[in-house]
Amino acid sequence: MIKTEHISKTFQNVKALDDVSFQIRKGEIVCLIGPSGSGKSTLCRCINGLEIPESGNIYIEGKLVDYRDEMQAKEARSKTGFVFQHFNLFPHMNVMDNMILAPMKTLHMSKEEAIAKAKELLQRVGLADKEDAYPKKLSGGQKQRAAIARSLMMNPQIMLFDEPTSALDPEMVMEVLEVMKQLAGEGMTMVVVTHEMGFAKEIANRIVFLEDGKIIEENTPDLFFSQPQTKRAQDFLRKVLY
């Protein structure tokens, strides 16, 4: 469903991604983990064309995508939804308007249709009573759930999550993870960049461990967390797990 071949990306002489090849199949849930600056977010952002790698190929559903080409970018992005660490809701619109803007403008959904769909999705993420609220009035967890619902409005086949709970107060992490778990249960294909090891262990089909812009280890969660193969993964897990 998604494939990257030998992609590299450099920020000011730092190799954020160094020849990364990676694949994800339909229905699979892959968690990208690793220390800060390991390139996991960059990989996630490259898949959605928010960063353009200097070299390498990205395939979405078997099709090579050049994100510098507007048509190709639009087609690829129509298949993916992206959830940001800082939510990036539109602050000057209430939740409902945040939800219906893109479907009306890009999918040419009618307003009634968009509102009906938005209500259904807000119900699913537990925000049925917040449609008139402005983002400023929502808690972090509510903002992130609204942002997830907003990207689901576009009917993505793949959801990309870039550290969706990193900017949240600890007591709000759970409610966002619950929504993601529910999504996973419905068979959504997901790429999740996360520091929530417990969550990764529970929902992922596969863990991809990155460090210094390279994929160091790739395994099922059971094996990865119980018997990490590489020394770097062992060190990392020792530091993050009690």
Binding site: F82, H86, F87, F90, L101, T106
Partner: peptide
């Protein structure tokens, strides 16, 4: 983040400017 969210939601450049960026 506002530009990126608009991009990931596939808003056209014009719609992004008109509904997201310029009002803010």
């Amino acid at each position: 983040g506002q530009w990126e969210a608009s991009m990931s939601l596939n808003l056209s450049h014009w719609d992004m400017m008109r509904y997201v960026i310029l009002p803010q």
